[in-house]
Design a binder for these strands. Structure first.
Length: 668
DNA sequence: GTAGGGTTAG
């Protein structure tokens, strides 16, 4: 009996020590104590409840320290488990990303006579389901929350919001949110970031505005949630307003994420001057700061400045990461900086980052944009994992280079390799079928897309419509178009169908659709105007075209472009109204380009107008001296009018500048 | 011990 008392004392001591270690989350001390307990050899034989408590606390201490192997081993050996211990274990698994194991612990808590989950448990479990996007499990968990009566717990509600947002269930999240009696700042923040993550930036901004109107105090998480949405929507004014909140509350001083979000917002709104002002005020910068800065300059087309910032970053003692590199690679692609792209590729290899998903994808994209799809395929071939993004990059790379057959081949290869296609895959692939313009193949891919259940997506339907119009199958295109609900018809799909009709000479239909679009409340943009004007010029609808052109000039947000002037010059020119076309060119708000003069010259050929033809040709010879077509066209006018001598002179002129590509007979 | 947050992206 005396002996037992002695045994218990060290255990009691252990317990009090464990309390301290748990609080301090000290793994070293926990391990030392564990060793001491093992060495004494008392625990396995004692079997007392005190011993069980020590073991349980030891498991808890390991769980709190994040040491999964020991926590799990001890946990498995326990005859009884308490909710706090289970919770700690679930939390631990969540923290190290092992959400499935977290759920397994939760399942072990269920069942009669087991360990009933409490409100804490549910917050962790929601987190695990959300991270895994397990909607069905999430629903079941929500049911259990109801049954256990935790549905009015503010923490659990917030966790449910996050769960639904992570599963893309905005409506379900909204329902929980609307029914909450007590919304904390976390609830609002979860809604804002949730909407944005599900690409509903507009809704995110709306919730933020509602939050401000409700008088809820925003915190740093609020601003970092709403700022990306401001940047995405280019809502500079709202972004600036958020900036004033940050200044008033001093949120930027203690939190680098806030300044980074501000900087990024300005960069996305094209205000690098403001972004520079933000970075100047920061007393510490991290890799996110510099990446946002570099990416900002890349987005705004200033590669020079992006590279300068890359240097500044290194002077600042910050090392680039895959995000930084992928921004720079994207700049290389859009500016055809193959040499620099290769250097970055080399750097990635040396840093052992070449198989990083971002870098791998960016490399494939960069080489393709630099017209080296062969190297893109090389990069892809070295990739081992079955990841979708690099394959998508190769598909769009092929399409970008007009390699439609190769894109389709690559897609088939992708399916054979069991790489999971996603929406972006289909979006990248469809233009290949538009290039091929083969109805049979179009119907095949349409069938595939339909079977895969992707025809609910407007973007995909738009792609299919484009394919059918390019194949000349306007009925199929229109059928797809009609099936889109009225409020989901966006500017892109309208532009595509209008262009489709225009392309095949159905000018009236195109104009009608255009009017229908405006009537439905969708505002035309530069692209839509190009499509409809093009349709008019192809179908010879002079008055309609001019009306629309004037409508566009009155339509403030749309600024006329070269394309629009080219269409109108073409339109007037074909109709024989050459002087008007020339007058329009002279009245253009910017220097006419080769396309505009080309349209006039083309019209002059049709109507055999030498005076204006010579003027147009003179400009064209200056703008694109290498283009043999222009010489040929002018010579054609001379020949048509029997001015053989002048035609001959043009031929000499071509010879003199070394242009031999045009066959001699085309000059007469 | 609970929930929300910054740079990329086909």
């Amino acid at each position: 009996m005396n002996g037992r008392k002695h045994l218990l004392e060290p255990l009691a001591q252990c317990r009090s020590l464990l309390q301290r270690f748990k609080a301090a989350r000290s793994l070293t001390n926990t391990k030392l104590l564990h060793a001491r307990i093992v060495v004494t050899g008392l625990l396995p034989t004692s079997g007392s409840s005190a011993a069980a408590k020590v073991l349980s606390n030891l498991a808890l201490a390991y769980a709190l320290c994040g040491h999964a192997p020991h926590a799990a081993a001890l946990f498995d050996g326990l005859p009884e488990r308490s909710p706090p211990l289970c919770n700690a274990l679930i939390r631990m698994y969540n923290l190290c990303g092992r959400h499935r194991e977290a759920l397994r612990v939760f399942v072990g808590m269920l069942g009669p006579g087991r360990c009933p989950p409490d409100n804490f448990t549910y917050t962790f479990v929601c987190k695990a389901c959300g991270e895994l996007s397990l909607l069905d499990v999430g629903f079941a968990v929500h049911g259990k929350v109801f049954a256990a009566g935790f549905d009015s717990d503010a923490f659990v509600q917030n966790a449910l919001l996050a769960l639904y947002m992570n599963c893309g269930q905005m409506a379900a999240a909204r329902k929980v949110f609307d029914e909450m009696q007590e919304r904390t700042v976390v609830s609002w923040n979860t809604m804002i970031s949730g909407y944005f993550k599900n690409s509903y930036a507009g809704e995110a901004v709306m919730i933020f505005k509602l939050m401000m109107n409700t008088g809820v105090e925003p915190d740093s998480a609020t601003v970092v949630s709403v700022l990306p949405a401001c940047g995405n929507l280019k809502e500079l004014d709202l972004g600036k307003y958020v900036h004033t909140i940050v200044e008033e509350k001093g949120l930027g001083n203690k939190n680098i994420a806030v300044s980074n979000a501000l900087l990024d917002m300005y960069a996305k709104c094209g205000r690098m001057d403001e972004a520079e002002a933000v970075i100047r005020e920061m007393d510490k910068r991290d890799v996110v700061t510099w990446s946002a800065m570099i990416n900002g300059y890349v987005l705004n087309g200033d590669v020079r400045k992006a590279l300068d910032n890359c240097l500044l970053m290194q002077f600042d003692g910050v090392k680039p990461n895959p995000v930084t590199i992928s921004s720079l690679l994207s700049a290389c692609g859009s500016s055809f900086l193959l040499k620099l792209g290769r250097c970055l590729h080399g750097w990635s290899v040396r840093q052992k980052l070449e198989s990083d998903l971002l870098i791998e994808t960016a490399l494939i994209d960069m080489y393709a944009k630099c017209k080296r799809v062969d190297v893109s395929f090389h990069v892809l071939a070295r990739a081992l994992q079955k990841r979708t993004a690099p394959w998508n990059a190769i598909l769009s790379g092929c399409v970008h280079n007009g390699l439609a057959k190769e894109a389709i081949q690559a897609f088939k290869h992708m399916l054979i390799e069991e790489v999971e296609p996603n929406l972006a895959t289909v979006n990248s692939l469809l233009p290949a079928y538009a290039i091929l313009a083969d109805v049979q193949q179009a119907m095949n891919i349409h069938g595939y897309v339909a079977r895969s259940g992707w025809v609910i997506n407007v973007e995909i339907i738009t792609g299919l419509i484009d394919v059918y119009t390019k194949c000349g199958h306007l009925e199929s295109a229109h059928r797809l178009f009609n099936d889109i609900p009225r409020n989901e018809k966006d500017i892109v799909v309208w532009s595509v169908i209008i262009a489709g009709y225009g392309m095949h000479g159905h000018g009236e239909a195109a104009v009608l659709l255009f009017k229908e679009m405006v009537h439905s409340g969708v505002h035309p943009n530069e692209v839509t105007f190009t499509s409809v004007l093009h349709a008019c010029s192809h179908a010879g609808l002079v008055e309609e075209g001019l009306d629309l052109f004037n409508f566009m000039l009155d339509n403030n947000p749309v600024t006329p472009h070269f394309d629009h002037y080219t269409c109108i010059v073409d339109l007037l020119g074909r109709a024989g109204r050459l002087q008007e076309a020339y007058d329009l060119i002279k009245a253009m708000p910017f220097k006419p380009n080769h396309a505009v003069w080309g349209a006039l010259l083309g019209a002059c050929v049709i109507h055999e107008n030498v005076e204006l033809g010579e003027i147009a040709a003179k400009w064209l010879f200056e703008l694109e001296p290498e283009n043999t077509g222009n010489y040929v066209l002018l010579a054609k006018i001379y020949s048509a009018l029997g001015r053989w001598k002048d035609a001959e002179d043009i031929r000499h002129m071509m010879k003199k500048i070394g242009l031999r590509k045009a066959p001699a007979h085309s000059l007469v």
